[in-house]
């Protein structure tokens, strides 16, 4: 079975071809990392996978189903969750509310029930809360439960965003530069969490990352991109030593 596959992805923005014929396959249980210089098209690939951008050509397959035409709000329900490079949290809400929104894909209450807050709604809310609390325990977010996002330091926000994505109970987790802006210690924590997410929670990770030590530590496979075109695929070491990749980074 195909867990996740992108085939011949292309997207044009006006004159720019930001992604130009990218194909790759992610096996279940892997950590798959995309690397590449700034502007290579990594985030654009994420936006294509989460269906925020419409591909000019190419297909996306997830769990043997084609998702190239699925509407963006369906993606979470299918089991793909993501974080954003520039953190897109709900800033004027608390950490807990952010995580509970992560449960939206599992919403079962109807509008009229919520309007009068039937006991069923209360019971469902408690279920969502239990699920969110599990994630809070997993990522050590207990001290921040009731803090507003605007009052939190950057490092914690990154973790909250990952927590929110985990609350959707995804099969595939997209992490866009999980270590950017983090201190050395925070980056180490992040490496352990990514490993735990894979081994303890059994979630497949597709990640974009610049920090090569983090990439080498956690990735099973690495894809290098430049100008929207794939340069090399393989283990972290193979890709790092690939002559085209070296050239792309050194600007040769």
């Amino acid at each position: 079975m195909t867990f996740f596959a992108a085939d011949g992805l292309v997207i044009n923005f006006g004159g720019i071809r930001a992604v130009d014929g990218v194909s790759f396959e992610v096996e279940q249980g892997q950590v798959f990392t995309i690397i590449g210089p700034n502007g290579a098209g990594k985030t654009t690939i994420f936006n294509l996978v989460s269906r925020i951008y419409e591909p000019t050509a190419g297909t996306l397959v997830f769990c043997d189903e084609e998702i190239t035409r699925v509407p963006p709000h369906e993606i979470a329900r299918r089991g793909i969750a993501r974080t954003f490079q520039n953190i897109e949290l709900f800033e004027h809400a608390t950490v807990l509310q952010n995580l509970l929104l992560g449960r939206h894909a599992h919403k079962r209450s109807r509008f009229l029930e919520e309007l009068v807050f039937l006991p069923r709604v209360r019971a469902l809310e408690l279920e969502h809360r239990e699920a969110a609390e599990k994630v809070i325990d997993f990522l050590d977010l207990q001290p921040y439960r009731d803090s507003l996002i605007v009052n939190l330091p950057y490092g914690v926000r990154k973790v909250v965003e990952m927590a929110r994505a985990l609350c959707t109970e995804p099969k595939l987790l997209l992490l866009d530069e999980p270590s950017s802006g983090l201190s050395v210690e925070e980056t180490e924590d992040m490496a352990f969490w990514i490993q735990d997410i894979r081994t303890l929670l059994g979630i497949t990770v597709l990640m974009v990352e610049h920090d090569m030590s983090l990439v080498s530590a956690v990735s099973d496979r690495v894809l290098a991109l430049n100008y929207g075109r794939p340069l090399a695929v393989g283990t972290a070491r193979e890709v790092q030593e690939h002559p085209d990749v070296v050239k792309a980074y050194l600007g040769g």
Binding site: F84, E88, A93, K107, T168
Partner: peptide, 30 residues
């Protein structure tokens, strides 16, 4: 009634749309 909605998924989805449409969408909010 409004307070009820605001403590339910619907109210949270509204707040999510206010703060970040793209994140709301990626979390499954139509």
């Amino acid at each position: 009634l409004t307070a009820n909605l605001l403590r339910s998924p619907t109210g949270r989805a509204w707040v999510a749309i206010r703060d970040s449409e793209i994140a709301a969408q990626s979390m499954g909010v139509n």
